[in-house]
């Protein structure tokens, strides 16, 4: 059913070409993930991510194991891109991470017909952020992102690499803020603070 090896080879050759001949547009343009590295060796991920997540999904659904690294939700979290307004773009949208290579190798996945293709919106109100602080964060992000536009609109792998080598302060700040807010989401979900009630009864 699958002709994985040839595809991967093609892909790798494509990547190689792109790396050596930066101007060549013959390969997929893969947006860069957040953080330093992937949940496993990058090359290993390129080849084996399908088996990893499919294995993970059975572990989770059938055996209830949720603390393993290859969760689809995690992939989305790290690999999703944001547009100029700091809004996340669907990870399966054209040119986005999960469709970049797949379009190239004509693979089709249906995962995001069910799975959220963007991280859950962070509804700060129910997290109990002070509205003022919240607005400040939003404004800061929007301003910087619009200026730099470096997260959403990447035109080539070359710029990816550059971005990876010299991450602008902005990206770091963005990540830090994001992690901070995410921690609060998790805390709110697990503690089921009374604040949650508003969202339930909303």
């Amino acid at each position: 059913m699958r002709f994985r090896l040839p595809h991967v080879m093609l892909l790798l050759i494509g990547l190689l070409l792109m790396n050596t001949v930066a101007a060549d547009n013959s390969g997929p343009i893969i947006p860069k993930g957040k953080g330093e590295q992937c949940v496993a060796d990058t090359d290993f991920m390129r080849r084996n991510h399908m088996d990893l997540i499919v294995h993970q999904r059975d572990e989770t659904v059938i055996r209830g194991i949720r603390d393993e690294p290859f969760s689809l939700a995690e992939c989305v979290d790290c690999h999703v891109q944001t547009d100029a307004n700091a809004k996340p773009i669907r990870i399966d949208a054209e040119g986005q991470f999960c469709s970049s290579c797949h379009t190239y190798v004509a693979a089709k996945i249906d995962c995001f017909g069910c799975h959220a293709a963007v991280p859950d919106p962070i509804d700060d109100k129910k997290l109990g952020f002070a509205p003022a602080a919240n607005e400040a964060i939003e404004a800061y992000l929007a301003r910087n992102l619009a200026e730099n536009n470096s997260v959403g609109d990447r035109s080539s792998v070359e710029s990816n690499r550059l971005a990876a080598k010299n991450p602008p302060d902005l990206a770091q700040t963005h990540d830090a803020l994001r992690t901070f807010r995410q921690k609060h989401v998790q805390a709110a979900h697990s503690a089921r603070t009374p604040l949650h009630r508003e969202s339930v009864l909303r």
Partner: peptide, 23 residues
Amino acid sequence: QLTRAPRGKGTVESCTLCVHRID
């Protein structure tokens, strides 16, 4: 959809006893 509850056309679903919370 929400990240914790993938749902999509053409399949059957029902109460999960909130397994994601149990787990």
